[in-house]
Amino acid sequence: MSYFVQLVVDGLATGSVYGALALAIVLVNRSTGMINFSQGALAVLSTFVAYAVVQAGAPLLLGLLVAVAFAVVLGAFVERVVVRRFEGGDANTAVVATIGLLVLVSGIAGAIWSYDPRPFPSLFPNATLGLGGVFVSVRSIGTTVVIVAVMVLLQLLFRFTKLGLAMRAVADNPSSAALSGLPVSRLLMIGWGIAAGLGAVAGVLVAPQLFISPTMLDFTLVYALAAAILGGLDSPLGAVVAGWFIGVVENLAGAYVDVIGNDLKIAVPFAAMIVILALRPQGLFGRRTVVRV
């Protein structure tokens, strides 16, 4: 029994990281209607900035703040300079453009810092708590707490603030939003900036575990995309819960189903995703799109 609980706890910890990146993806989708495949690469580049700050002798917390600030500017810049050319056009073109960005940004990080994984300090003490035979690292608890806090803040932002309402309006119908006086292009930049800042937080949280390298978040991004879709692309709560679900299912299937084992366990959450989406196309927490004409 304690083995089972241990697997679930470990799954939740991994799932929190999927959820963190999924939150950034949901944020971009909710504020611009797009899916940003370069979300992970932007997060990695920002995490390298934190790494550089720490290398220069500054504390990690300062590194995190600098990384988030850098990411906000980077995200807004990318939206303004690259993505804007594709907005309002074919959605597929925009998606391919963000995949191109993924390759480009990873390449930049690789050119500067090389592809060798390097150790990265943790924000949380390297301790483990034991409770009834189950062990959980302080780092996992810290990561989960931060992710839940960010999720709650995002829910509040969208639900109760004027900025959140404006971002939802722009994602829904940019031309009508402009006719109501909303500064559409500025709101799009803000959406991308906040999402990239969130990605930087995710990167700094996960880097101690994965070791920092330009490809650090490649797998995480795939899981995060799955979590975002599974949770419902417009739901921060859904992104986090689906992230946990994927982390736990992956862990349990790998441990308990012999044929699956370690190599195939990454496929399990996707099989689950296909089944769930067949039954509930809008995702677990997404709102169903209704259109009457």
Partner: peptide, 19 residues
């Protein structure tokens, strides 16, 4: 019409009052 399809009626009105 150009209403914001996924936003509620009340939210549509509040978007109108954005400025």
């Amino acid at each position: 019409r150009g209403t914001m399809a996924q936003l509620t009626v009340r939210d549509n009105l509040l978007v109108g009052a954005y400025q």
